[in-house]
């Protein structure tokens, strides 16, 4: 690496420094836009005791579901975990701690974490189990709870295209949590389908500037589909 060039040579190098007990912020929604090769590398490394913030926890044998097989996750911060039998089993037995967080709150916690905002008030979750123990304030006659920002030792994310400086473009709904996840990690690792030379991306079309990205790698993706629904012609 030199200057602004963020490209690393291998997945091993991409996650160098990831240690037991760290917190990871991960992009993706279901299996859409997940950093699938970075997750496989975490499995290969065998890192344990991880806290992972991600909207979902993959499905059995795919995405973050892979990290449950060897019990690498200690705590999961997610909004919806209903697609994963192994997850449910580990949660019910108490091996896996789960902090259910509303989807919009989770996105905003990551955004705030990356933007240097320590906490924010939101109406979401007021009067529900999510609001228990949290500070409540009234603004203009409505109740809001204080939610704290989320930051990670690492973030792992997937984008569509990048230049070598880490300027990123996402594709369709594979964008989802990826931009916020990237901003919230001390070391932001991004895998992409294509890396182009600097100058080849139109600055107006860049979704996330490379300033947020620390390590960049090009991979190949299976892009599994969770619910393949089609209509007939």
């Amino acid at each position: 690496m030199s200057g602004f060039d963020k490209v690393v040579g291998s997945y091993e190098e991409a996650l160098e420094g990831l240690n037991d007990g760290m917190t990871i912020i991960a992009g993706g929604f279901g299996l859409c836009g997940i950093p699938e090769n970075l997750i496989k590398e975490i499995k290969r490394r065998g890192t344990k005791g991880l806290t992972i913030a991600s909207n979902n926890a993959g499905v059995d044998g795919k995405g973050l579901g892979l990290l449950l097989e060897d019990k690498q996750i200690k705590k999961m911060i997610a909004s919806y975990v209903g697609e994963n039998a192994l997850f449910e089993a580990q949660m019910m037995s108490g091996e896996l701690e789960v902090e259910l967080t509303p989807q919009g709150t989770l996105a905003e916690k990551m955004r705030a974490g990356g933007a240097g905002i320590p906490a924010f008030y939101t109406a979401t979750g007021y009067g529900t189990p999510v609001g228990e123990g949290k500070e409540v304030r009234e603004f203009n006659g409505r109740h809001y709870i204080l939610e704290e920002a989320l930051c990670g030792d690492f973030s792992i994310a997937k984008a569509w295209k990048a230049d070598r400086y880490g300027n990123l473009m996402f594709r369709k709904t594979a964008r989802n949590f990826n931009p916020m996840a990237i901003t919230a990690g001390k070391i932001a690792v991004v895998e992409v389908e294509e890396i182009v030379e600097v100058g080849q991306l139109d600055p107006d079309e860049i979704h996330l500037p490379g300033i947020y990205v620390n390590r960049l790698i090009q991979g190949t993706f299976a892009k599994d589909i969770e619910q393949r629904t089609v209509r007939s012609a």
Binding site: A78, Y80, V81, E88, P102, Q103, T105, Y126
Partner: peptide
Amino acid sequence: IKGMGGAMDLVA
């Protein structure tokens, strides 16, 4: 226990 997804945000 499946989770609330976006439902809490939507109703609020």
